[in-house]
Design a binder for these strands. Structure first.
Lengths: 194, 194
DNA sequence: TCCTTATTTGACAGCACAGTCCAAAAACAG
DNA sequence: CTGTTTTTGGACTGTGCTGTCAAATAAGGA
């Protein structure tokens, strides 16, 4: 029987996510990655293929985890609109302690645009998931009378998604939690029925 | 007397902006830059110092030009709120023909975060300029009764800035003009007095 | 104990990159 | 035409990068 692996693949990937999240794809060197993952060169190439595949896997994992978090937060709230507000405000809150890393997916979109098909596909699927969730909540909010009755759910969902992206990039650019709080508040207030 | 320069420094910088805008700082190689600028290696090093200084100069120039455009657009409109709407909608319109490059400043913010002090300073000054312009227009809109009277001008200005950033990144991520149009419309409608 | 098989380790190849050096060309004053 | 001064182009340097290779190592099964 062969020698057994000495490292935990999942844990190593988790640490690779951190590095890519901080530094992006290009700026993250393999040596930096290996140091953070705590494994040797060849082990990484054996387990993940190459830097690019490691990145794709890291991006998929990041998206899966963060969207799971978000969906949990969306379903836990007492009302649809406050659930959406909660998600936006959470980003504003996180931006301080989370070392201003923004969101790995937002960074990926900025770094690659649509130049990389696989990256674009991963990001698109994540965006779609968010979009449907937002649209459903907006519809609920309308039914409950929380949101303006004339609101187009699809358009509002697109707006919310864009707002989150903007929030995260403003956070990366150094905006303070108060600034981000303002942004989130105005965005939600604009949807509210008055 | 010395030999006279064979190239137009301004034109060369203009072309460097295009390359950095498309590809960012890291991904733009000097050879790519030189080819686009139409000059030799040594000429670039003589005229601009090095790649980093060229980038900083390109970023400053980009910001000066695009904000001049925006201010013109903001002052030309018939009403404050429609001026703001015009700016947002212009981004939505541009995103098609402009080869999905988003905005060089947004890309720079994503690429560098706050890791580069000089880049951050350039971006901050641009953001400040936008912010004051937006705040003034929101105040005007309130006075004219176009905007909600309870609106906080500073917060609304922050919101508008974040919305623009979001729009541009969504454009880079591949959002269609219709999607961007929706985002812009909902954002402005949220500020409007009803 | 020895053999098979997979992982680890360290060294190394190949490449692309930013930046430098130097000789040749070009412009103009005298 | 000559001398001075700057630009120019091409070759070159050194460095850092990703990815590979081969030998050493570990873990069981025969």
């Amino acid at each position: 029987m062969p020698r057994t692996k000495e490292f935990d693949r999942d844990e190593a990937l988790r640490r690779a996510v951190e590095v890519f999240w901080d530094r992006g794809y290009e700026a993250a060197s393999t040596e930096e990655l290996l140091a953070a993952m705590g494994i040797g060169r060849q082990s990484m190439y054996n387990a993940f293929g190459d830097k690019r595949r490691l990145y794709l896997e890291a991006l998929r994992r990041y998206q899966a985890e963060t969207s799971a978090d978000m969906f949990e937060r969306l379903s836990a709230a007492e009302s649809p609109l406050s659930a959406l507000a909660g998600v936006l405000l959470e980003v504003a809150r996180q931006s301080d302690d989370e070392r201003r890393r923004s969101c790995m997916a937002v960074n990926a979109a900025a770094e690659f645009g649509r130049s990389d098909q696989e990256v674009a596909a991963i990001l698109d699927s994540g965006s779609d998931l968010c979009h449907t969730a937002y649209a459903r909540l907006v519809a609920q909010a309308k039914r409950k009378g929380e949101a303006r009755p004339d609101l187009d759910e699809q358009a509002a969902a697109r707006f919310l998604h864009s707002t989150l992206v903007g929030l995260r990039l403003r956070a990366r650019a150094g905006a303070s939690p108060e600034v981000l709080h303002d942004i989130a508040t105005i965005a939600i207030d604009g949807l509210r029925a008055r």
